[in-house]
Design a binder for these strands. Structure first.
Lengths: 122, 122
DNA sequence: GTAAGTACATACATTTGTGTAAGTATGGAT
DNA sequence: ATCCATACTTACACAAATGTATGTACTTAC
């Protein structure tokens, strides 16, 4: 365990903290959905695209690169034609996906209550 | 319990699902931090602004309105001069904040590992 | 021969998020 | 008399996120 490994915990309330970047990637519009989609199974690019409703190819690629850069997603390309690339979660990514999925699940479940509030408060 | 109250659970993978809006608010850059800041205590606008590093007045107001509209935040204005407005979480907001805080805490804790990966993968 | 599927990259256009500056009405401090 | 604090709103501007269209290199299906 060297110096870099001893780096301190992040602080999201601090504007300059690098954790803000990670938060941005994980809570990005498509980041959330990609993490959830990869939670149960390894998926290929096109499968992922079909699973996550509304993503463009461009954004899916971008999002996957962000998550790969943070070490949450693992990319494995098989050198064949046509291309075949598998995406899966790293152990770190699994942990993140758990939390994200918990939030997403709560939103899906609570949607009726939230929608009801919207109507009243109109 | 009428028809509107029986509305079904949301599906975030569906592009047109209203839950996407809620997700956007809750996982927005400042939405996350506001929910966490209000988790332990009721705060006034300016207090909130000082607590959440880097928010502009404009965005804080915007974010609070989103969350209030979704029924997650309660706004109480005291009719005095100078203005005094208290923000707190509704029961629904508390539930959301729990999940968001779990994710945020994980990010803060895991930052060293993530940062380490970034260096290696450069 | 033509179209479709695969996993992207790249250029360009547009939408959205976000920041900055200023304004409002008032009271208290300097 | 001037400045600051409160809790915003509004107008303007810019940067970032996102979408659209196109291209690649090759294979299989029609």
């Amino acid at each position: 365990m060297n110096l870099t490994a001893k780096m301190e915990r992040g602080d999201l309330m601090a504007a300059a903290c690098p954790s803000r970047e990670v938060l941005k990637h994980v809570t990005s519009r498509w980041g959330v959905l990609v993490l959830i989609a990869l939670r149960d199974e390894t998926l290929r690019f096109s499968q992922l695209r079909r699973r996550v409703g509304g993503v463009s190819e461009r954004m899916l690629a971008q999002t996957l690169q962000w998550l790969e850069g943070d070490g949450l997603v693992k990319r494995v390309a098989h050198e064949v034609v046509p291309p075949h690339v598998d995406y899966s979660l790293t152990p770190l990514g699994q942990q993140a996906a758990e939390r994200v999925a918990a939030l997403a699940d709560w939103i899906e479940t609570s949607l009726p209550k939230i929608a009801a509030h919207r109507k009243v408060g109109s």
